[in-house]
Design a protein around this nucleic acid. Sequence first.
DNA 1: CGAACGACCTGCAGGC
DNA 2: TGCCTGCAGGTCGTTC
Length: 290
Amino acid sequence: MPELPEVETTRRSLAPLIGAQVQQVQVHNPALRWPVPADLHRLTGQTLLTLQRRSKYLLARFSQDGTLWHLGMSGSLTIHADRPGYFPVAQPRRKHDHLILDLAQQGQHWQLRYHDPRRFGCCLWLDDEDSHPLLTRLGPEPLSVDFTPDYLLQTLERRTAPVKSVLMDNAVVVGVGNIYATEALFQTGIHPARPAHGVTAAEADLLVKNVRQILQTAIDLGGTTLRDYVNGFGENGYFQQTLQAYGRAGEPCIRCQQTLQTSRIGQRASVYCPVCQPACPSLQRYSNSR
DNA sequence: CGAACGACCTGCAGGC
DNA sequence: TGCCTGCAGGTCGTTC
């Protein structure tokens, strides 16, 4: 599920919890990707101060301690409250609801439920953002000023792996998973299997623009819901309705009507148009329309 | 250092 | 209907 737009959408939807005080910590299954800290109950009595995102990690700062959350491939965080627009607190705990925080603010009872069938996600202590091992090697945020065409070009020039694999490498740029890498390369007219070092300056320039535009549009539409992604209110995203390549193998290219092809690149399904994304860049024709 | 690949875990779709 | 296989949005760790 969650790539950057979904994590950002989740973060925004959890804003009502800021300022609330933890009343109880329920750990129903600590066996996530890494064990949930045995002393997570230490959060009891602490107030949620800030909710930030770095890459696909959610950083939740409480009055004494910081926490780091990841939704893995199938995770979601939802709010429960006894007020309109929320799941009721009385709703029974679902299978795979592994963590539940009870919070209170001005008499309002809130619940934050962490649901993750595949348990690829995590919830860990976060002391120092700048020294946490999961955060130190991350590349720039794709929507920040640090993600420039020059930076991307210089990085791609040093790599021989397929451009799609490099684009999905968190040390290069964070938050671009299989869906958005597929879309960005389609938009830019770059074959996903092309060696990264063969990408031209003009292509890198366009690729940066398209990655940015696609991620921003996805955030604006509340993310992509393929199976089970929902935001904190249990709402779907709508970006899947605008997907032009991902999930469309065998269907006609929206530009040239050629049948979209699929192959495996870096162990991930990759969809591309053999005409609009030629393996040989000399046949390239650029476009930047969406 | 980079590249390739297995591993983690459950749910689901498709084939038989 | 049921069993088996393969695949899925992420990313860490190992090996070469």
